[in-house]
């Protein structure tokens, strides 16, 4: 299977603190890769290196190579905005803009220069369908996004990310603030989305990783302990630390 992202010798320091230690990971195209591990293990930090959101944090130093389709995203000739268009992100807390549902989805395309109303309508509908939200909101497009439920808001955020046509979608504990039913809906959606997109998700919930991901990476104390096919990692882990974690002995 071809990889869309390849990460090698990745090290990240916050000042003195060595947060990510010499990590290597391949992310295959059109699959779901899940990052698991206890709090503070570095999984979210790692995720945020993939679209350079860590650039915002003062005092961060990143070494190694992170390649998207063979291009190093940390090289000088990388345009961060183009990168973030290709690698979209959904956050832990649903964070729709305080605007109408339509405007939320149209936000990215509009600011990237699409003015044509018919095209925007088409993008909004396609993105909302992609996020399985269209049927619920098609008559409420001018209503405030804040009037939606938490689960709907999170799917709206997914639609907003899809609207700029990314290749990779990063999900940073995207269901941890949601109720079980909304969580299930998003998990179903993730399985749908991998037909067209590559998904990388951080989850604090091992069962979620087991349910939806194809590959799983286990993080511990800033190290990437083990990566494997999800089924294999959960049934027959190589590293004893992985086994201790998935059998619930810590974390």
């Amino acid at each position: 299977m071809t990889s869309i992202m390849e990460i090698e010798r990745l090290n990240l320091h916050y000042g003195e603190f060595h947060a990510l230690k010499n990590m290597k990971l391949d992310i295959p195209k059109q699959t779901v890769t899940a990052f698991i591990g206890p709090s503070g293990c570095g999984k979210s930090t790692f995720l945020r290196t993939l679209n350079r959101m860590n650039d915002l944090v003062p005092g961060v130093q990143i070494d190694g190579s992170v390649k998207l389709d063979g291009q190093d995203i940390y090289s000088d000739d990388t345009d961060v905005e183009t990168l973030r268009k290709r690698v979209g992100m959904v956050f832990q807390q649903p964070n729709p803009f305080p605007k109408s549902i339509f405007d939320n989805v149209a936000y990215g395309p509009r600011l990237h220069g699409i003015k044509d109303k018919a095209r925007l309508n088409e993008i909004v509908e396609r993105s909302l369908r992609g996020a399985s939200l269209w049927e619920e909101v098609k008559d409420l497009l001018n209503k405030s996004a804040l009037s939606l439920s938490g689960g709907q808001q999170q799917r709206l955020c997914i639609a907003r990310a899809l609207a700029v046509e990314p290749d990779v979608l990063l999900m940073d504990e995207a269901t941890s603030a949601l109720d079980p039913i909304s969580t299930l809906k998003i998990e179903e959606l993730v399985r749908e989305l991998k037909k067209d997109y590559t998904i990388v998700m951080v989850t604090h919930n091992m069962h979620q990783a087991a349910r939806v991901s194809d590959r799983t990476a286990f993080f511990l104390n800033g190290e990437l302990v083990e990566t494997d096919d999800t089924e294999k990692l959960f049934s027959n882990p190589v590293d004893s630390r992985t086994e201790d974690y998935i059998t619930g002995r810590f974390g």
Partner: peptide
């Protein structure tokens, strides 16, 4: 979260 949402969409 609002700021990050904007940046994550590839806005400058």
């Amino acid at each position: 979260e609002q700021k990050e949402a904007g940046l994550a969409l590839g806005l400058t």
